[in-house]
């Protein structure tokens, strides 16, 4: 795009061209691009620093315990009868009670699985929506030249600077006039329309980190923007896409306020609303079942993170460009 010499962040000389074929055909094929980012070399592990590694592990475990204490306490409490949770707040229950799980699962009008399913629908729709729409918008902002780009970018950022509490009422009126209240549409459609500026900005930053020579070259090779986007940008941004997917999943899974407002019938309720109905400041609260179901609802997000983070960790080279 720019005719000025490409600015390099790395101080050392630019590494040499990856393969001789590039010069011959004028542009590198994508497999050659991939070759430019080889696998990280396997670190050799000499026996000497073994002690240091052990020390690291110990530190990580201890720190991990501090991080996890509240969660462990919640886990422990989920096995205590409600009356004992506050009277005997220790980490090891004196009396194991598994009934919180069965009780909590059946405490509301539908089995808790129903709410998990509803949440799953909302979450998957949102993840899909954000991945597609935000990456598209991000490509435009990161790579395309058009009039008013900075202005539109500012407008986009502005849209996340207002607290939800003042826009929820107009939003409700809008969705109500579309007859969308008590459906999942107000929760999913906005994501399909890239209203989550956070992720657009995130991907813009990642796209801008991808060397421009790659798409310049592809362009000259006759690739349109669609192909560059699909075949170069997306595969090279797998960590960013994984981040988007994971965060959308977690944040939607935990999002309380908009789900509370837009879903009115109990059979449409999602996990955060269901969890809130265990506790009421003005009457009895079922803390035991609440903790039990909180643990249950943590499992899917934890698993998603556990699997998802693999993709965060995969370097560009291993993303399998064909």
């Amino acid at each position: 795009m720019t005719d000025a010499p490409v600015r390099r962040a790395a101080p050392s000389d630019s590494p040499a061209a990856p393969s001789s074929g590039a010069a011959g055909r004028g542009t590198p094929s994508l497999s050659e691009v991939a070759a430019a980012y080889p696998d990280p070399p396997a670190r050799r592990r000499p026996a000497g620093p073994r002690l240091r590694r052990l020390g690291k592990h110990v530190a990580l475990v201890v720190f991990g315990f501090v991080m996890l204490y509240p969660l462990l306490w919640m886990l422990a409490s989920s096995f205590k009868p409600t009356a004992l949770i506050f009277r005997e707040p220790g980490l090891i229950p004196t009396e194991w009670d598994f009934s919180n799980y069965t009780e909590g699962w059946n405490a509301l009008l539908d089995p808790f699985g129903h709410y998990l399913l509803n949440s799953a629908i909302v979450v998957l729709g949102s993840v899909l929506g954000n991945l597609v729409s935000c990456s598209m918008a991000a490509y435009a902002f990161a790579r395309l030249k058009f009039r008013g780009r900075n202005l539109w970018f500012a407008v986009m950022l502005m849209s996340i600077m207002l607290p939800i509490h003042v826009i929820i009422v107009p939003q409700y009126i809008l969705f109500s006039s579309l007859s969308w209240i008590n459906t999942f549409l107000p929760l999913i459609v906005p994501k399909l329309l890239a209203t989550d500026a956070f992720f657009i900005f995130l991907m813009v930053q990642f796209f801008r980190g991808i060397p421009k020579e790659l798409d310049e070259a592809a362009r000259l090779d006759g690739c349109g923007h669609g192909r560059i986007f699909l075949r170069i940008m997306l595969p090279l941004s797998l960590p960013a896409l994984a981040t988007t997917a994971i965060f959308t999943f977690i944040w939607t899974w935990n999002d309380f306020f908009s789900q509370l407002i837009f879903l009115t019938k109990p059979d449409m309720y999602t996990v955060p609303i269901a969890l809130r109905t265990f506790v009421d400041a003005t009457s009895n609260s079922s803390w035991g079942p609440l903790f039990a179901m909180s643990i249950v609802s943590l499992i899917p997000v934890f698993l998603v993170f556990l699997f998802g983070q693999k993709y965060l960790v995969k370097g560009i080279a291993t993303t399998g460009i064909k």
């Binding site: 395309l144 030249k145 058009f146 780009r149 849209s159 826009i167 107009p170 657009i200 923007h225 986007f229």
Partner: peptide
């Protein structure tokens, strides 16, 4: 410029901006 391509790539976002974000804002 890439005006036409930009319009395409930004279409979902723009629709969202006009239909969903702008009014409450």
């Amino acid at each position: 410029g890439d005006g036409r391509a930009a319009a395409l790539f930004l279409a979902p976002w723009f629709v969202g901006l006009v239909l969903i974000t702008a009014f409450p804002l």
